[in-house]
């Protein structure tokens, strides 16, 4: 464990907990894409299957439970909680995310490190996580506005990805044989997706005007 990875995990946990807390507190999910949240729930469900078979550490298991619990709770609130569901922007959140699931599944069947059930699903979860933010970014462009929470959510997610890249650089130089091309490439693609959002987020913050 290194400081970059710990900071990355904390930032990631904070991003999902802030989102869950906001939805729970103000009973609204305006501006939030349920499709992105569903994709994240699938990412965690397919990546953390080994929670029952391989024990890495208390921290690892605890964090997996936090991510699973928070992502499924957010989907539950947005889909089944009456007050929250009413504020869900169905007309604008129309990204056909099942195509993303299908293409990531096919890609995982083609490119993976080991052809085993857990390994293919783990690789699938990496590919899916890289594109999971797309429905949210599309919704953000459509609604043209960004209430401070959605911006913070995406900002923290981008921060987590950036810190993980620093973590991989650190581990590459400190651990022999630490080479995970699939993880690195998907992580880089995901971080690049956030790059343009960061550019406009920074501009709006610098000029102190609403993000458009």
């Amino acid at each position: 464990m290194n400081i970059f990875r710990l900071a990355g995990d904390m930032t990631h946990m904070f991003s999902v907990l802030v989102l869950l807390l906001k939805i729970h507190t103000i009973k609204s999910c305006a501006g939030v894409s349920v499709k992105t949240q569903e994709l994240y729930a699938i990412v965690f469900a397919t990546r953390y299957l080994d929670i029952f078979t391989s024990f890495v550490s208390i921290y690892n298991t605890f964090m997996k439970l936090v991510f699973l619990g928070s992502s499924f709770s957010i989907v539950w609130y947005m889909r089944y909680h009456k007050a929250v569901h009413r504020t869900y922007d169905r007309e604008q959140d129309t990204f056909r995310h099942w195509f993303l699931v299908l293409s990531c599944l096919l890609l995982a069947l083609l490119i993976h490190e080991k052809f085993t059930f857990l390994e293919v699903l783990w690789t699938f979860s990496l590919y899916l996580e890289a594109v999971a933010i797309l429905p949210q970014l599309v919704l953000l462009q459509r609604t043209r506005n960004i209430d401070n929470l959605t911006g913070q959510y995406i900002f923290l997610l981008g921060g987590y990805r950036g810190l993980y890249i620093l973590n991989w650089i650190y581990r590459y130089f400190t651990e022999p044989h630490f080479v995970h091309w699939i993880t690195w490439i998907t992580g880089l693609v995901q971080t690049l997706l956030y790059a343009d959002f960061f550019y406009y987020y920074f501009l709006s913050w610098k000029n102190n005007k609403k993000l458009n």
């Binding site: 990875r5 995990d9 990631h12 990546r47 080994d50 391989s54 890495v56 690892n60 964090m63 997996k64 991510f67 080991k114 783990w122 993980y164 973590n167 044989h177 630490f178 993880t183």
Partner: peptide
């Protein structure tokens, strides 16, 4: 080596 194979990152 097994430690390397099992995914220790979240």
């Amino acid at each position: 080596l097994d430690a390397l194979l099992t995914h220790d990152e979240l």
